[in-house]
């Protein structure tokens, strides 16, 4: 009995000790990161020792990266990488590799950064450091100029929405209708051009498509693109987790490029 009373007296202390131990573990874990941050960044040093920034990409994804008729890589990401290299006073070298292999190749130190229209992927943050977004992809609406632009999903209710058959927009609308109560009529055309034609002919009230694809249509006088995207996917740069200096230099450069208009000019050039 006395023994039991002893437990009753001591368990709060034991509980408190367990919490303290847990907190200490967190601090130690955090300090590993801290040490990493304070330590040398061999990737960053390597870039300057070589005088070359090595960038991994799959050059088959216009307008971000693609190979032109002369076999030269071009695109938004290519210009962005060149701008980064210029700021850091080094040359740039592109490694064109299949997309599936980019992350492993980065971790195997085959290059220093991935700049390849990369989406942010939370599951990979143990190995990768992602930059701040430098662009956004996603779905956009196109409407006839006289009807005004449509940026809210709820505004699609009761409308005929034309999409390219099987496109991301098609799947997105089907999901919204199945799970989120959207009540629109989908007109699935064989190509995006045919979907836009349906809009112009009045057979559809709107077109929903990829933002980059929309860009070439909304330059026409009779069509209007939505001001906001229906979905917004950030596009980021990936550095190895072991390269904190490189990561912060990338972020600083992107911030500066956003402020001085470089990113906006790149969008204007390539989108």
């Amino acid at each position: 009995m006395g023994n039991r009373r002893g437990w009753a007296r001591w368990w709060p202390l034991g509980f408190a000790l367990a919490i303290v131990a847990y907190a200490l573990l967190q601090v130690v874990g955090g300090s590993l990161d801290l040490r990493l941050r304070l330590g040398r960044d061999e990737v960053w040093e390597g870039i300057h020792a070589r005088g070359v920034l090595r960038v991994g990409m799959e050059a088959s994804y216009p307008p971000f990266e693609f190979t032109d008729a002369d076999g030269v890589v071009q695109g938004f990401d290519v210009d962005l990488a060149r701008a980064l290299a210029e700021r850091w006073g080094v040359e740039v070298q592109f490694v064109d590799l299949h997309y599936d292999g980019l992350v492993e190749a980065l971790l195997a130190e085959k290059f220093d950064l991935i700049i390849s229209a990369l989406p942010y992927e939370e599951r990979l943050t143990r190995d990768l450091s992602y930059s701040r977004p430098y662009a956004y992809l996603g779905l956009q609406t196109i409407s006839r100029s006289e009807g005004g632009s449509v940026s809210q999903l709820s505004e699609l209710d009761g409308r005929v929405v034309a999409v390219e058959l099987g496109s991301e927009a098609h799947q997105y609308l089907r999901l919204q209708m199945r799970d989120h109560g959207l009540q629109a009529e989908i007109l699935a055309e064989r190509t995006l051009e045919q979907a836009v034609e349906a809009l112009r002919q009045g057979r559809a009230d709107l077109v929903v498509c990829d933002r980059v694809e929309a860009a070439s249509y909304i330059q026409a006088d009779d069509l209007l693109g939505s001001e906001a995207l229906l979905t917004a996917e950030p596009v980021v740069i990936a550095a190895p987790r072991t390269a904190p200096t490189l990561q912060s230099e990338v972020d600083a450069a992107l911030r500066a490029m956003q402020e001085d208009g470089t990113l906006a000019r790149l969008e204007q050039r390539w989108f």
Binding site: S60, Y61, P62, P63, F66, E164, L165, G166, S167, E168, H170, R190, T191, L192, C209, D210, V212, E213
Partner: peptide
């Protein structure tokens, strides 16, 4: 593959 911007893709219809 039927992604609209991958250079090695085809349209969804052609994919089917």
């Amino acid at each position: 593959n039927d992604h609209p911007r991958w250079t090695k893709a085809v349209s969804s219809y052609d994919r089917i």
